[in-house]
């Protein structure tokens, strides 16, 4: 799948759920490219801002959209990567705050 296709598919499906792409389109396309790279590498679209364990079961919580997107967008107006934001976040044209990692510590690195 090409980035443009992924953009269109996700935009439609995620906006319907109340999650919008960041207004910074370059950032969005860079992140979507990261998702496609990870899909090729691991077989699933692991979050581009987190290290994959290369184990779909282990990484289930960080397959995009990750399970932390909902609480992060609710609390900070954007997800950890800043790929998805709330409608208000984009409309108010406010700088997106730093979003701390919500994934539990013990899940982050698998050595």
């Amino acid at each position: 799948m090409k980035i443009e296709q992924l953009y269109e598919v996700l935009k439609k499906s995620q906006e319907a759920k109340g999650y919008y792409f960041n207004r910074n389109k370059k950032r969005v396309f860079d992140l979507l490219e990261g998702l496609l790279i990870n899909k090729k590498r691991y077989g699933y679209m692991c979050c581009p801002c987190r290290l994959a364990a290369e184990d779909r079961h282990w990484d289930q919580d960080i397959i995009c959209p990750c399970v932390y997107r909902g609480p992060d967008v609710a609390e900070y107006g954007s997800c950890y990567c800043q790929l998805y934001v709330s409608q208000e976040g984009n409309e108010e044209k406010m700088p997106h705050a730093y979003v701390p990692e919500r994934r539990p510590m013990e899940k982050r690195f698998r050595l």
Partner: peptide
């Protein structure tokens, strides 16, 4: 860093 990470970039 991660090569795919926007914050890293």
């Amino acid at each position: 860093a991660l090569s795919t990470c926007s914050h890293c970039r």
